[in-house]
Design a protein around this nucleic acid. Structure first.
Lengths: 123, 123
DNA sequence: CACTAATATAAACAAATACTTATATTAAGA
DNA sequence: TCTTAATATAAGTATTTGTTTATATTAGTG
């Protein structure tokens, strides 16, 4: 399953939120998710499997219990894709945008001459 | 459609990549996506509709053409959700991490004494 | 106005997937 | 070893959704 499809399901996103503070046993996840979404243990277990196999969660055994934790691999991959668009709302990091930002800052430093307004850069 | 489901489709993700450099006519998108994925104009048009209605793209008309652009709303929303986990792989932003970062900056200002190298901060 | 170009929409269908119930696995405890 | 606890897996089903073909819309052109 593709990483973006993994996050497409609200139950799986919620499970990741539950795991965020620290590891959690399958049973505890079943309780919370069961209460919130009204689905069975089997369904939750299948979601946990998806999270495991797609790099969003890891498990360790402790007796019969399975303790799940967040695996950053999947989340980082998603973040990396989004990151290619981040300069759209955070132009600071872009080289060109740095120049633009400097241009925008000029009016602040320049003495007020004749109401420059928007028509700077008249060639 | 939920924002994460929007990104779950590889065609829609690719369309957003195509729009990233700047606006693009529907027809151009159809050409590229059609070549890459082998789907029809109708299919692409429906994907564009999804992107529109979910806040990932905007359109403006120019004669019969529809020029699509990236809308950051959707992407920001996704980024915000991911952001809640970012401290897993970028602990810098954390309050505690800020202090650590300040500590790391010290050697830059401090005069070179005895080949500081990596072992500063020996308490 | 008839025709073409560019795009969107409708209807129908097939594949994917999130669920269910039922059962299997694995470990601890009497 | 029998039983219980905790979790996973199997099989079946219904819903969702991405696609296609066919048609509708909207704007320019002869």
């Amino acid at each position: 399953m593709q990483i973006f499809e993994v996050l497409a399901d609200p139950v799986r996103r919620r499970i990741l939120e539950l795991l965020a503070p620290g590891e959690m046993a399958s049973g505890e996840v079943v309780e919370v998710i069961g209460a919130e979404f009204g689905i069975t243990q089997a369904a939750v277990s299948q979601h946990l499997k998806v999270l495991r196999e797609s790099g969003f969660a890891t498990v360790r055994a402790e007796a019969q219990r399975r303790l799940y934790s967040v695996d950053v691999a999947g989340l980082r991959a998603v973040d990396a894709w989004i990151g290619r668009f981040r300069n759209f709302w955070e132009p600071k990091l872009d080289a060109l945008a740095t120049e633009i930002a400097r241009g925008k800052r000029e009016p602040r430093n320049a003495p007020i001459t004749k109401r420059g307004g928007k028509r700077a850069r008249v060639r």
